[in-house]
Design a protein around this nucleic acid. Sequence first.
DNA 1: AATATTTATTTGTAAGACAAATTGATTTAA
DNA 2: TTAAATCAATTTGTCTTACAAATAAATATT
Lengths: 229, 229
Amino acid sequence: MNELQKDLNMKTVKRKTLSNQVIEQIIDLLMSGQLKAGDKLPSEMKLMDMLNVSRPVLREALISLETLGVVHRKTREGTFFTDRVGSEPYRIMLAISMGDMESIIETRLSQELGLVTLAAEKITELDLKRLEENIRAMEEAEGDYSEIDREFHRIIAFSGSNPITEGIIDPLLNMYDKTLENIPLKNRDKEKTVQQHREIYEALENRDPLAAHASMHRHLVYVRERLSY
Amino acid sequence: MNELQKDLNMKTVKRKTLSNQVIEQIIDLLMSGQLKAGDKLPSEMKLMDMLNVSRPVLREALISLETLGVVHRKTREGTFFTDRVGSEPYRIMLAISMGDMESIIETRLSQELGLVTLAAEKITELDLKRLEENIRAMEEAEGDYSEIDREFHRIIAFSGSNPITEGIIDPLLNMYDKTLENIPLKNRDKEKTVQQHREIYEALENRDPLAAHASMHRHLVYVRERLSY
DNA sequence: AATATTTATTTGTAAGACAAATTGATTTAA
DNA sequence: TTAAATCAATTTGTCTTACAAATAAATATT
């Protein structure tokens, strides 16, 4: 399979297996407004009859949708549309970037900068308070403060409260940590990190999206530049 | 199922079905470095033996991974890890936001702002040229220019060349258009749009991430404010 | 050497059966 | 009457077996 054929194949041909067609039909329930996030789907047995497919094909479709975080299935209760996709799909997707440090760093950059901009609009007083407490905890920490650092970033990511993309932050930070765990950091400088977190915090407090973005960008670029690669 | 129980259930319990466990094992091939993007997996029959599960369970896992864009399967050839997840997973995920206009707008905001920041570092001369041509095409357009507008945003999103997240742009713009198609825009002002696109272009040409972000933010906020909702 | 046909490989689909999880209904005991 | 225990029903979970479909590779024919 040469490069040109591979490219065409991936872009122009969508596989029309039966299970894919079942996925389409289920998703169309959402797209058409017949059902919405939180609603229950019919049981497997009923869907089999309704869609006129075998049970294995139906299960392939439903389990795929569950892996994508679009539905949640439970024995004896049934299958429900979710209202947010969570972190699992991203954890699995990110596995294809394992070993590709540049891609992981860039994914982190683009995601966190987008989420912090959104957070500047949407952050609650409670989350601002938690950020403040986090900064104070980092000031007082003696030794490893990476969990505190991580929590700062998590608070921001979740404060945007976005059902599709907020879930990427945990798997992304996990993958980032795992990718970098064998790479020495030049200098860990807690004071500098605290200062940068404080700048981000103040921009968020001021609900200034551009300042939030700029300070987070400064911080993430600084983090990147400390990598000796 | 009350709210507290639902919350705990979603966060603390990961379903341990066999097909999920198979997914873990396959993903671990990537995480451990045994296989990488582009590599071929063993056939279904071989994986059945290796993992000691039935064929339907194995298929559930493999088809789920394909729906997530992590593998690509083809009759007689086999199953391969992909090097980018593409747009299909996002198209399906975004279905749960159907009807939630605020969430869709916010997703667009956070994703496009993250991607444009990345583009400022990574954009090629070719893509800059394409943006320039796109702006010129919009200036000359008579009548509907929404496809040209859309292409401007697509070029930027793909110029970041990120294998995990670039795929969101098409489904996102589709969902955005679909959500807004029955909402009247106050004033379509081509000149203003061209001007804003030009500002974004210039920031990208200058490879200035902050300016790129700021101009894109200005543009998307302007677009948002024209909605009469 | 080029074309056509056949074979082999791998995924795709289905039917049937039983198991596991667990909520809801019924029965029993206090 | 209430609480606890037990049983039944519902839905998902897993497996075996069989055949179909798609198509690249191998073989035969021209």
